[in-house]
Simulated assay, not measured.
Amino acid sequence: MGKIERIEVPAADRDRLETLVRDRNTPQKVVWRARIVLLTDEGLRATEVATRVGTSTLTVRRWRRRYAQAGVDGLLKDATRPPGRKPLTAAVIQRVVDMTLHEKPPRATQWSVRSMAAVTGLSHTSVQRIWHAHGLKPHLVKTFKLSTDKPFVEKVQDVVGLYLDPPDKALVLAVDEKSQIQALDRTQPGLPLKKGRAGTMTHDYKRHGTTTLFAALDVATGTVLGTCMKRHRHQEFLRFLREINRATPRHLDLHLIVDNYATHKHPKVKAWLAKHPRFHLHFTPAWASWLNLVERFFALITQERIRRGAFTSVPDLESAIIDYLEHHNADPRPFVWTASASAILEKVARAKQALESQH
């Protein structure tokens, strides 16, 4: 059908079109289609109608042609267009999924959208859509480590019991050392954050030494007792235990959750603990540092203060750490533990079963 510069609109159609334009419930796309037809009926050319409606000349001609073919009802429905390509068959989709899950690409450890597209003869966008629909992300890998500690169950129940049902007249403290914190200074000053641009920092740095943060997180309140020391031997751990002893009320028992680092089991540490019976050490299972809540605080201070910091010396770094501790303790918020021991053990059992089934 050629260009249509003039349309004869019957009175009944005009009334219906004007009703559509006036009705507040009419979708806007239908309103401007109706206006196109009404303005054309007034004798306006396509370019003039396009200016009045605020659309293109091609759009005006398309909807005038639609009205000429299907009347007012043709304006109420969007045009349907045949797909540019035939949809992928279920067999093709299943082949991509199976290859992603069970095969490796040549000379590589994981598929990319383009390597998969090259093998299957699909476009990389088709591979992307299949992976997205099936929740497949070959480019990602997560690390894990299942504990092989024989008393794993007993230790999980002990530590989680302290979190969910702490003893009366006692403090539960999650204790650990964040060792080898480096005082790094950037070789050049970076650019600040601004609209449309992330802050920048150089990829290289100058090393000015290291320090170790000893921290004891009060599980109930979220406050953190911390101090920095050069090393993390049993001597330093004993100094920190004495600091905890001085900083806490003497009438309260202290239940310390610690990992299996040899320093925590040194004979001199055991001897000191024997002389201070209000101290009770509870060990997390081997390879299960996630059970110690103080690790969550270490992640927080690393993210908020250390990772992007620039420190010209170890004292500069230690000053920043102590300042962060003081700021944190001014408005502490506890990390709330919610997982029960049974839920953790069931999850670990499922993970072991899955690994055994794969090997």
Score class of each variant (00 low, 15 high):
174 A>I: 01
78 D>L: 03
58 L>F: 14
217 L>P: 00
77 K>N: 15
74 G>W: 04
184 L>G: 00
286 A>C: 07
242 R>A: 12
115 S>T: 05
112 S>M: 06
153 V>Y: 08
173 L>P: 05
276 H>M: 00
262 A>Q: 04
219 V>G: 03
119 V>C: 08
304 E>P: 08
243 E>D: 15
105 P>A: 04
300 L>T: 10
305 R>G: 07
241 L>T: 00
298 F>G: 02
293 L>H: 06
315 P>K: 05
197 R>V: 09
236 E>L: 03
56 S>T: 12
84 G>E: 07
85 R>L: 02
279 F>S: 09
232 H>I: 05
278 R>I: 08
24 R>T: 11
111 W>Q: 01
234 H>M: 01
317 L>W: 00
344 I>W: 05
148 T>G: 10
45 R>F: 08
100 T>N: 08
91 A>M: 14
134 H>L: 06
132 H>M: 11
332 P>Y: 00
141 V>G: 14
285 P>C: 07
35 R>T: 03
77 K>F: 15
345 L>E: 07
359 H>Q: 15
106 P>D: 03
163 Y>Q: 12
119 V>H: 03
263 T>Q: 04
131 W>L: 05
91 A>L: 09
150 K>S: 15
10 P>V: 11
261 Y>A: 11
205 Y>W: 12
262 A>F: 11
102 H>F: 10
164 L>F: 05
329 N>F: 03
253 D>C: 11
351 A>D: 13
301 I>F: 05
261 Y>I: 11
146 L>Y: 02
139 H>A: 09
36 I>V: 14
300 L>F: 06
102 H>R: 11
207 R>F: 11
229 M>Q: 07
326 E>C: 15
230 K>W: 03
167 P>D: 08
17 L>T: 08
338 T>D: 06
139 H>R: 07
75 L>Q: 02
64 R>M: 14
273 L>Y: 04
90 A>V: 07
330 A>K: 12
31 V>C: 02
333 R>C: 14
183 A>C: 03
274 A>T: 10
9 V>T: 07
170 A>S: 11
11 A>H: 12
287 W>S: 13
186 R>W: 04
19 T>Q: 14
209 G>T: 01
345 L>C: 02
231 R>W: 04
154 E>G: 05
228 C>R: 03
102 H>S: 10
353 Q>S: 12
284 T>W: 04
52 R>G: 04
78 D>G: 14
153 V>W: 06
230 K>A: 12
219 V>W: 02
89 T>Q: 10
197 R>Y: 08
128 Q>G: 12
189 P>A: 13
33 R>P: 00
132 H>Q: 13
119 V>Y: 12
162 L>S: 03
8 E>F: 15
